[in-house]
Design a protein around this nucleic acid. Sequence first.
RNA 1: GCGGUCAUAGCUCAGUUGGUUAGAGCACAAGAUUGUGAUUCUUGGGGUCGCGGGUUCGAAUCCCGUUGACCGCCCCA
Length: 441
Amino acid sequence: MAQFQSLPGFREFYPDAFARRSHIFRGWRRAAHAYGFSEYDAPVLEPLELYKAKSGDEIEAQLFSFVDKGGREVALRPEMTPTVCRLVGAKASALKRPIKWCSIGEFYRYERAQKGRERAFFQFNCDIFGEPGPEAEIELIGLLVQALSGFGLTAADFYVRLSDRTLWLHYLASLGLDEARSKSVLGAVDKYEKMGDDAFKGYAEAHGAPLAEEVKAKVLAFLKIKSLSALEAVLAPIGGDALQARLADWRKLLNGLAAMGLGEFVEVDFGVVRGLAYYTGFVFEAFDRKGELRAIAGGGRYDDLVKKLGGPDLPAVGFAIGDVTMGLLLEARGLMPAFGPNAEIYAVIGGEAERAAAFLDIAALRAAGYRVEYPLKDLAFGKQFKAAAESGAKIALVYGGDELAKGVVKLRDLADRSEHEIPRDSVLVAVRDHLSGGASS
RNA sequence: GCGGUCAUAGCUCAGUUGGUUAGAGCACAAGAUUGUGAUUCUUGGGGUCGCGGGUUCGAAUCCCGUUGACCGCCCCA
């Protein structure tokens, strides 16, 4: 039994787990590159103030924070958004628009680990800066879908729920609610799915009286809106240019996503508002269809945040996918491949005398990019062939005394068990022909 | 921060009302087999039974504490 254990919520990636993690990262990068996003990274340790400025003092309880030896209050990053806002803000005027950036990084939150939630986890963050219109959302949600569907997940496995804090605030204002009351109502809406009617208790406590029943009925009806047409019907009597412009944005967004063939992945759902106060417009969350897991991804527009963190006035929209929940979903749907040894060639070596000849070819094959394995210590031939089969290799090269005496190497196809002799000086060519052609005779 | 369940070999687990030196399967290694593979047989390494304390002639087993894991609550950027 090991004397030391890893800290709670921190994961150790043994080779098989690391292979699964790499598979996830590869899929994310493939999608991001297809969409023309540039990858960046930034410090893991940041000034504590960066997160307080964005989220308030209460956030400190959820952070890995401490005072460093220089007396600085610092924190391990719990998310990428404030950092990327700083990076983009600092060079905004020099960056070509639109700014489409992505990153894969590890994040740290001091919370109790649960299913789908660890204290250290990876996130794929994608953001578009400098584009205020719904064109940015189309591009970003398209990427979100592809970053999941690229693993083989379909519209039967996950979907993106799409909502809009701007419209919510318009609607609540039309019901006579001021800004503070509207924020409280949005907080209740965020919790309604889980808590039901109790979600509105906070409103009553904050404002001294419960939300008027007729207003509450309208709020509950609004959060159940699941289509653009239902939305238009509810908002028609209210009118106003701003509202009409916003509905036009909605049509553009949904039409754009439909034209990309993503209609079946996206659902209008005003039950989503996301609790975070800094979201300013469209918000969205990706969930598994069966509702068995916590959110796979979340995002939205945050047009005020870059400026709030000391940068220029720069509109922004972004999302993040976590590796934990997405990994669970891939496993549950049988979409996580089995990763094992993946050698292509296994050299069977007769003994010390044959080793030098084998090494010459092994080095050449490896230099040419082939994955080559051989036994580090002398082994019986039977064991070597067994090891060759287990290594995943497609062919074995046999360096025995008999072969070397004849100036040849025996090439054995491990799948069909055929073998033939090849001249020592044409091993590379013979291997290339055999592996590329798939021919065995 | 709160509650529930659990902790025996690398993995999955068994271990009788507390009783001799804690077991099995899988995995790993060696041999049977100094020239041909997923089979078989034999053998081996690997445990302070999560950790600490208590009760007892005697504790993997009972009690207390603690740490960790899983599940849920709070939170979820």
